[in-house]
Amino acid sequence: MNYTYGYARVSTQSQELARQLDILEKYQCNKIMTEKISGTKADRPQLNKLKESVREGDTVVVESWSRLGRSTKDLIDLVDFFSMKKVKLISDKENFDTTTPQGKLMLTVFQAFSQFERDLIVERTKEGLKSARARGRVGGRPKLNSKKVKQAISLYDTKQYSLKDIREMTGVSSATLYRYLNARKTNHYDQ
Rank of each mutant, 00 (worst) to 15 (best):
P45R: 10
V172L: 00
E35D: 09
K51I: 13
T125W: 06
V122M: 11
E63G: 11
V172K: 02
R118G: 07
N95I: 12
K93V: 02
L17V: 07
Y7H: 03
K147S: 15
K185T: 06
L89I: 04
T40E: 14
P45N: 10
V138N: 14
S71C: 07
S11A: 13
I166P: 04
Y161L: 07
L68S: 01
R133T: 03
E52Q: 10
P142S: 12
M106P: 03
K185M: 08
R118C: 03
T59W: 04
T40A: 15
R137H: 12
K147I: 08
S71N: 10
M33T: 03
A42R: 11
S38C: 08
G6K: 02
T176Y: 01
E16W: 15
N182A: 15
M84N: 13
V60C: 01
R184P: 06
Y161E: 04
E16T: 15
T72F: 15
E52V: 10
G136T: 06
M169H: 03
A42D: 10
T170V: 06
V62S: 06
D190F: 14
R118I: 03
Q102D: 15
L47C: 01
K41L: 08
E16I: 06
K148M: 14
T99C: 12
Y3C: 11
K88P: 00
E168S: 14
L181H: 01
P101L: 02
Q115L: 09
R67V: 02
I121D: 05
S53C: 13
